[in-house]
Design a protein around this nucleic acid. Structure first.
Length: 622
DNA sequence: GTAGGGTTAG
């Protein structure tokens, strides 16, 4: 879990973004106009702006960013903009801090177009923002995932004699984190410490959040522990916020370290920070995902006892967990409870419960809920339709699914790629290839581009419905158009080819994996092994089994079952027993398919029963 | 009210 040895050796090869920023004014051709105005000294500006002229500008160096509509109800921003206009026209220039206040207001509201417009007008009026204004701009670029521009502005800052401070660097660290450049973020942090600029609780909070979001919660935890206990830290002087803790707990839970999440939760309380509905939510969600339903319920009750009102999200995650456990009646009870408590369910609540009913095959209950939504004035969304259509498809009620699709279109809900993927899967499974073809051809009418899943569904569907040529044609046309195919796509085609008896073509495709930049997965091998077995080529199947092991791809129960079925059908009992032993040695649990193979073996010849004695796991199961 | 972290659900 703790991936790296110590705090400041987190990442070794960080890109030297900082130096880079010192020498390059900007790394981006467009959207850099504002930055360009500010990285230069006034005397240079004339020269520079021509380089960074906005592509649509014909009149000069100023950037004609349109004013965004001012009718969105955000009075603060509108007031700020009106005030800004007034201030620019005043005879005596107001202090720069007044301008900064307005810039800050607009930046906080994330009205970036307005913000850039303001900056440009200031530059026009020869009012170059000083370092606070530039910090606002840097932070905005970072929020917009344009950290390179942030660095460019910092370069301009240095040039104009301002010293970037910890606020500047915190923004840049955030920017690197949101662009998923965690290594660079850590590198920058190390650098500023060497420069004598010391990070504070917000800087550390930024990094911890960034680490959690990028799937490095273990590192975040290590960092946190160092800050609280370690040499570089502050001990009790380090006072992270409730949000900081919520991020960390959530990150840990999402990566499966729920116990650590619980510890952090206690630590937080021990430091006098009271958890809120979000902190509880992060923990409850983590426990639900781990199947720790009782513990999740315990925290749920605990939070209510403490007077923390569960909100719609809290209920939704609990309803989802109950549905996944097959406890739809209890889930429905929770829905009633939330309504009783005055918490309004949203479309996610209903979609989740409907999905639970569908999973249990309770289509009528799902339908009833669907109908009741409209009756009770709850908004449906596209996902509501997707869930119910998926339920119908999974229960082979294709007519109901398609009727719902048409109803949805009549009501002007816009289908998504997922809608099509659900219906295509259903149609292929029901053998309705012609309907699937027609539906697929309609995707473009809805301005939808098939995604990788769509192609897998098609490749698989054509193959399984005796249309291998269509699958091959599709595959070839995708390759020709430069579409990057993944191993799942290829596995679907491989399986179809094998099932259609086109083993040569399958082998050819399998051999092309490396050239396509793909690594065969356990599914790939199982598919090929199955193909060879079905074709009676047991030796090839066995070789492939050995090959996958040598290449470090561990076979799973399906691989074992596939190969054993092959040998069993070929009356090679010793080989089956050998594989059974191998399975037992690796502590694989045989499943019902394994059992059927053994039963088959016994029915062929009772003398094989002596082999069964060798498999304790198996004989114990009775 | 001169700048920086920002969280839970299908």
């Amino acid at each position: 879990m703790l991936l790296l040895p110590s705090l400041f050796s987190l990442i070794r090869n960080s890109v030297e973004v900082y130096e880079l920023a010192m020498v390059s004014r900007t790394s981006s051709r467009y959207a850099a106009s504002t930055a360009a105005s500010l990285v230069s000294t006034p005397s240079e500006r004339c020269n520079l702006t021509t380089k960074f002229i906005h592509p649509k500008s014909r009149t000069g160096p100023q950037i004609p960013l349109p004013k965004s509509p001012r009718n969105d109800g955000k009075m603060n921003v509108n007031d700020a903009l009106a005030q800004f206009d007034k201030m620019l026209q005043m005879q005596t220039q107001p202090p720069v801090s007044s301008f900064n206040t307005l810039l800050g207001t607009v930046a906080k509201a994330k009205k970036y177009e307005d913000l850039f417009f303001m900056f440009n007008r200031m530059v026009e009026a020869n009012l170059l923002p000083e370092y606070i204004g530039m910090n606002i701009l840097i932070n905005s670029y970072c929020d917009l995932k344009r950290v390179a521009l942030g660095f460019a502005v910092m370069g301009g800052m240095l040039k104009r004699g301002y010293h970037p401070n910890i606020v500047t660097f915190t923004s840049l660290i955030k920017g690197l984190c949101v662009e998923d450049k965690i290594g660079d973020a850590v590198g920058l942090l190390r650098k500023i410490i060497r420069m004598g600029v010391y990070p504070n609780v917000k800087t550390w909070g930024t990094l911890v959040t960034g680490l959690c979001r990028s799937g490095n919660a273990g590192v975040a935890l290590r960092l946190h522990e160092e800050l609280v206990n370690g040499n570089v830290g502050f001990g009790l002087r380090f006072k992270p916020s409730l949000i900081y803790y919520s991020c960390l707990i959530d990150g840990l839970c999402k990566e499966g370290f729920v116990e650590k999440g619980k510890e952090l939760f206690s630590e937080m309380e021990g430091r006098g920070i009271s958890p809120d509905v979000v902190a509880y939510g992060a923990l409850i969600h983590g426990l639900c995902k781990m199947g720790e339903w009782e513990q999740a319920k315990g925290f749920f009750i605990h939070m209510m006892d403490r007077g923390i009102r569960p909100n719609v999200m809290t209920f939704n995650m609990l309803i989802d967990a109950l549905c996944k456990e097959g406890k739809t009646n209890e889930a429905s009870g929770l829905l009633e409870m939330m309504i009783r408590r005055g918490e309004k369910p949203d479309s996610i609540t209903f979609n989740t419960l409907m999905d639970g009913y569908c999973l249990e095959g309770r289509l009528n209950d799902a339908r009833e809920l669907f109908v009741s939504m409209a009756a009770k004035g709850h908004e449906r969304d596209i996902e509501t339709y997707n869930v119910l259509m998926n339920g119908y498809c999974k229960c082979h009620k294709l007519k109901e699914a398609m009727d719902l699709f048409n109803e949805m279109l009549c009501k002007e809900y816009k289908p998504t790629v997922i809608t099509f993927n659900i219906l295509l899967t259903g149609l292929f499974q029901a053998g309705k290839v012609e309907d699937a073809r027609k539906l697929y051809s309609k995707m473009k009418d809805h301005d939808l581009t098939p995604d990788s899943a769509t192609y897998s569904i098609l490749l698989d569907g054509f193959g399984k419905n005796n249309c291998p040529d269509e699958a091959i044609d599709l595959f070839r046309s995708l390759e020709k158009s430069g579409h990057k195919l993944n191993s799942l796509n290829c596995n679907c085609l491989l399986d179809g080819l094998c099932k259609a008896g086109q083993l040569d073509l399958a082998s050819e495709l399998f051999a092309r994996f490396p050239e396509m930049g793909l690594v065969p997965t356990v599914y790939t091998y199982s598919i090929m092994i199955n193909g060879f077995c079905k074709d009676g080529q047991l030796e090839k199947a066995n070789n492939l089994f050995l090959e996958m092991e040598n290449k470090g791809c561990a076979p799973d129960v399906v691989t074992f079952n596939t190969l054993m079925r092959g040998f069993c059908n070929n009356n090679d009992a010793p080989k089956v027993v050998e594989l059974l032993q191998k399975m037992a040695k690796r502590k694989f649990s045989p499943d019902s398919y394994t059992a059927s193979i053994v039963v088959d073996l016994l029915s062929k010849d009772k003398s094989y029963s002596k082999f069964l004695q060798l498999i304790p796991r198996f004989s114990n199961k009775g």
